[in-house]
Design a protein around this nucleic acid. Structure first.
Lengths: 194, 194
DNA sequence: ACGAAGTCGAACGGTAGTGTTCGAGTTGTC
DNA sequence: GACAACTCGAACACTACCGTTCGACTTCGT
């Protein structure tokens, strides 16, 4: 009778499969926002019916995958020390998270196609705020240019990371070089004094 | 008998409809790369069957739309004077073509989903070359930084224009401000001396 | 080793898009 | 004004995906 009263005692391998499905969903939807349920199930090495046994609909799966990857992002960002020079902080941030952010951005696109907009927004509001605050701090300290709105600067960062990701996907760019190119470009763009 | 022997004398209103369909295709696919044939036909104020009377398949329509908008881009770029200071030239280029390029970039996405990759590449190779050459000239003249590959700098320009377009579409950015923000950002990113 | 929980493939109904055919109606062109 | 070109809606077959049901099979937990 060791039942915590809230958990209906899920079986171990079932939980394991949920994990594999979620991982496959993140991977597949990160590549193709229109990936089908069959694709994801196959990538997870699991039957389609099994997938529907754990997630009631495709939308629910997309939301779960988005929640998962955003939670990963949150944890990663929370573990970073972003208190020093904003430029160094930005370099650290890009180096350690550009791939994840790019992937989550692709997943975000998948979500926007099938989820209510406010739900999407509230999910990724928190990690986005972290980046935004770093940029605003840089502006306040006079290290980043303030003649352009902070929202635009954050947007620039996102679009460049996403763009680099697609360049890597199409083979135009070497994955290992991406972080350096992004950092160099963004820092130059943020620099004060025109 | 004023028949140029190559033209089977298409009727005037038919040609007019082709024009409307093409315009609708550019507009619709520029917004949503997955727009259906019905949507496009409706936007053109034309029956779906009529559309198929002029274009044998959706793919053919996509290719025609892409060809059209790229031809427009070519003509526009050819009409610009890009021989002066590369910085001024870039400003001119962005100001007069960012919307078109952003739209064609969305259309390009639609094309990549349904056309053979090499066909897509050869279609947009020419206008892309113009931008690329401007950037390389700027590098050669020491005005643009040369410590990053020219392909990446081109990519940055594309991604920022595309990103600005999506920001405008989502209401995060005022359309009138976009050219200035793009120019300021790109020129800062291209600047020599880190 | 027994039962419950979980998995799986096959198959079904529903929806949405593509591409085609048909027949009737319109409209440009000579 | 007459004929050919064009348009259009309805309907059809085909494909792909979603979500569900069923029954047989496997595997975990005790």
């Amino acid at each position: 009778m060791t039942r915590p009263s809230t958990k209906p005692t899920r079986r171990a391998d079932a939980q394991h499969n949920v994990e594999r499905i979620l991982a496959a969903a993140v991977s597949c939807l990160g590549r193709d926002p229109d990936a089908s349920v069959s694709e994801i199930a196959q990538a997870a090495g699991v039957g389609r019916v099994t997938l529907y046994g754990h997630f009631p609909s495709r939308d629910a799966l997309v939301e779960a995958a988005l929640t998962r990857v955003l939670a990963d992002g949150e944890r990663l960002l929370a573990g970073l020390d972003l208190t020093g020079d904003p430029r160094d902080a930005l370099r650290v941030l890009i180096g350690s998270s550009w791939l994840l952010i790019a992937q989550s951005s692709a997943l975000l696109e998948a979500a926007q196609a099938s989820l209510p907009p406010n739900r999407v927004h509230e999910l990724h509001a928190e990690p986005a705020r972290r980046v935004d605050q770093l940029i605003r701090r840089g502006q306040a300290e006079g290290v980043f240019r303030a003649d352009l709105p902070a929202t635009w600067l954050t947007s620039v960062l996102h679009h460049l990371m996403k763009g680099a990701a697609t360049d890597v996907a199409t083979g135009q760019l070497d994955r290992a070089e991406a972080p350096r190119l992004i950092s160099e470009t963004v820092l130059a763009a943020y620099r004060v004094g025109g």
